[in-house]
């Protein structure tokens, strides 16, 4: 975990407002755990002031190259989307705890469920699990076809199901509709996406085993500011976890969504 000015290798818009940013730097060699994130400073002025947490989508440890996917939404990500090849970005990371990779054994099946900008960290996870001999089934949910990305890349890792809210690609509806319609056999569930999606998953599969990666507004990203705390299930009212430093990945059921 350190701060480094990493160099932009490439940046392109791969779907509507979704950017793929590749950077290179020494610290990237440490990014071996899928599910961790980096905290980027997008401006060297005070505007915007805080860093932006971005998930790790893929890492090539050999060439120390990190791929990030993010949605251009506010002023911070708009500035980030203007970074060009050769420019540098102030990166703090890797931060947080990633998905455990040793819960399954070779030959078992991992179900990966991602929604929107929660999809990217599942790609690095899929690659790592596949390398360990596990079967990958991915269910990816987007608003519409123009928002969808990385379908082919996930297809290289295993079977892929897509849902879009408007039905323009794959199943019309949500990831939960795919799970209802398809008879998918799996041993462990890994999911990342908006809290409403994780809640719906929890309701639909009450006995699910696996891991959720959570999102929340962050301040520092390192556990010091207490901005991103959550209540835990079955704990005292004052018990909590911090998404940035205790998570963002938690066993399903641990955090009160």
């Amino acid at each position: 975990m350190k701060k480094e000015f990493v160099q932009v290798i490439s940046q392109k818009e791969i779907a509507h407002q979704i950017f793929e940013l590749k950077v290179q730097g020494e610290v990237i060699a440490e990014m071996t755990s899928p599910g961790q994130f980096v905290h980027l400073r997008v401006s060297d002025s005070f505007q915007p002031l805080l860093r932006r947490p971005i998930s790790i989508c893929d890492v090539d440890v050999e060439s120390k190259t990190l791929t990030m996917l993010y949605r251009k939404e506010g002023a911070g990500t708009a500035l980030l989307s203007q970074k060009r090849e050769g420019e540098t970005v102030d990166l703090l990371g890797p931060l947080g705890n990633g998905f455990p990779l040793d819960t399954l054994s070779s030959g078992q099946t991992a179900l990966l469920v991602g929604g929107g900008i929660g999809v990217p960290p599942l790609y690095y996870l899929a690659k790592q699990l596949k390398r360990r001999g596990m079967n990958i089934v991915s269910v990816l949910g987007f608003q519409s076809e123009q928002d969808a990305f990385y379908n082919e890349k996930f297809a290289e890792q295993g079977e892929v199901f897509i849902s879009t809210v408007d039905g323009s690609l794959g199943t019309k509806g949500f990831v939960t509709d795919v799970l209802k319609n398809e008879d998918i056999n799996y041993d462990l569930l890994y999911s990342c996406g908006p809290t409403v999606m994780l809640k719906a998953l929890e309701a639909q599969i009450p006995d699910a085993n696996g891991f959720f990666s959570l999102e929340e507004r962050m301040g520092c990203g390192i556990g010091a500011c207490f901005a991103c705390v959550c209540h835990v299930n079955g704990g005292a009212p004052s018990d909590y976890v911090k998404i940035c430093s205790n998570g963002p990945v938690f066993p399903i059921g641990r955090v009160a969504l």
């Binding site: 002031l49 507004r217 301040g219 207490f226 901005a227 991103c228 705390v229």
Partner: peptide, 10 residues
């Protein structure tokens, strides 16, 4: 425990 989230805004 403190306040509910969101707790920060830029």
């Amino acid at each position: 425990f403190g306040n509910p989230t969101p707790r920060v805004a830029e």
